[in-house]
Simulated scan of single mutants.
Amino acid sequence: MVRCSVGVCTVLLCLILGGGPAAHAQPDSVRAAILKEKGFSPEHSPRKALWRAAAVPGWGQFYNRQYYKIPFVYAGLAGLAYAIFRMNQNYVLYRHAAVFARGQALQNKGRTIPDAISDWKAFRDDYRKVVREAGGNTENLEDLPLGGSQLRRVRDKFRQRRDLSILGTGLFYALTILDAYVSAHLLAFNVDDRVALNVRPVGGAHALLRGTGQRGLRGAFPPATPGGPGLRVRVSF
Rank of each mutant, 00 (worst) to 15 (best):
D143A: 13
P27S: 07
D163K: 04
L171R: 06
H24D: 15
F172R: 01
A207L: 06
F189S: 11
T225C: 04
V30P: 00
N90C: 09
R128H: 02
L175G: 06
D143H: 06
V6Y: 10
W51G: 05
A122Q: 15
P42S: 11
L141Q: 08
F62L: 14
A98Q: 05
V2M: 11
G60D: 08
A32D: 09
D126C: 06
G110K: 04
F40T: 05
I113Y: 07
A97P: 04
R31H: 07
K36Q: 13
W51V: 10
V154G: 02
G211S: 05
A81D: 08
R161M: 12
I166S: 09
P201R: 08
R200M: 13
A78M: 07
G103K: 06
S45Q: 03
G170Q: 10
V202M: 09
P223Y: 01
G136Q: 10
A116N: 08
N108Y: 06
L17W: 04
G20L: 02
G79T: 00
V130W: 02
A116C: 03
A116E: 15
E133C: 01
V11R: 14
A207Y: 05
A174K: 09
G110W: 03
K109I: 00
V199R: 02
Y82G: 11
Y173I: 00
R95V: 08
L146S: 04
L186H: 07
R128D: 05
A78R: 02
I113E: 07
A116P: 00
L209T: 13
G147C: 03
A83G: 12
L186S: 10
S165M: 06
V73A: 01
T10M: 05
A97D: 03
G7F: 08
V154H: 04
Q89P: 00
A180M: 02
M87C: 13
